[in-house]
Simulated assay, not measured.
Amino acid sequence: MRIKKIAFLLCLFAIVLGYCFAYKVDAQTPKPINSIATIIYDMQPPHEGMPNGVPSHYSWATKPGVGSNNPKQFKAMTAWGQLYESAKGNPANNTRVQIKNIKAYYLSKLDGKWHVLQSSTKVEGAAYREDFIGNANTAPDIRYESDGSVSVKAGNGYNYHFWPTTGRATINPYNVRAIFTTVQARLIVDNPKKRDDRSQARYLLNMGGDYWLNLTVKWDNWKTNEDFGMGKFKYVTRKWQAFNMITLPPDQIRRNPPPIK
């Protein structure tokens, strides 16, 4: 009886230990920042808030949308994003927006798979006039973070328009069924010696992308490029979020889920 009792206790201990280990592994496994549900949500109108300084007659002022899903003569592309203050105001003075992991993929007509076009931890860009008139821009308020990302501020009539550091990517216009672009962002404190005012911050961010004639051609009033879509403007929060743009409708997104890592 003593041997059976010891064996039973050892068995019970092993089961409890196994449950504890499984719980610990599950607790330490990070949840993905992005999801298929988020990607679908990011293409559904309206925006969570209106970006400051964007004229109401602009097609993207109030809602996301797909531009052209046909590259035609365009043989290059780039993902891009936009950071704006909310039209309702942004009272936070000690908050920055940290941005990282911008990526672009295309869905191939030939093999039905998603393939990477662009990927960089760091983004680069400029502070453009909020209405983009004249393509006027200036140097952004940018800070380079220890993890390879950047953090920025926007305001005073300017946004932060950004893209991958890898430059444009070549595409075969006859093999592109869809394009997907994504980035991650969160609010961080600007100066740790001052009051944390992130709870007052009202920053909006979205993702999009353009087709280009080639890898090096310059912008010429939309003669050399064309947008393929723009995602929902969402409020940036303290937690990392994914911001997405995709040219597929919801039913096709579910049937052809893009990478979310």
Results as ranks from 00 to 15, higher is better:
I33K: 01
I179H: 00
Y158L: 05
D141Y: 11
Q184T: 03
F180M: 04
I260V: 14
K218T: 11
Q252L: 15
F162L: 05
K232V: 02
Y41S: 01
I246W: 02
Q98R: 06
G65Q: 05
V217E: 05
F243L: 00
G208C: 04
S149W: 04
L187C: 03
R198Y: 07
Y58N: 11
Y84M: 05
T181N: 06
G49S: 08
L83C: 07
S120Q: 07
N69V: 11
T166P: 08
T182V: 13
M207V: 06
R202D: 04
D147V: 03
K103Y: 10
S146W: 12
N52K: 12
N156A: 13
R96E: 11
S86D: 14
T181K: 00
I33Y: 00
H115E: 11
Y23A: 14
D220S: 12
V183Q: 05
N221G: 13
K239S: 14
R177G: 09
Y235C: 06
S146E: 12
P140Q: 04
M1R: 11
L248F: 05
N93V: 12
N94F: 09
A136F: 09
W212C: 02
Q118G: 08
F13T: 15
N214Q: 07
V54S: 04
S86W: 00
Y105A: 02
R186H: 09
S59L: 10
N225L: 07
E85N: 10
I15H: 06
E226M: 11
T95M: 05
K72L: 14
N172R: 09
T78H: 12
A27D: 15
N135M: 14
Y105P: 07
I142H: 03
P164F: 04
K234Y: 03
A126S: 14
L83I: 10
H47A: 04
A37C: 00
N34Q: 10
H115Q: 06
N52T: 09
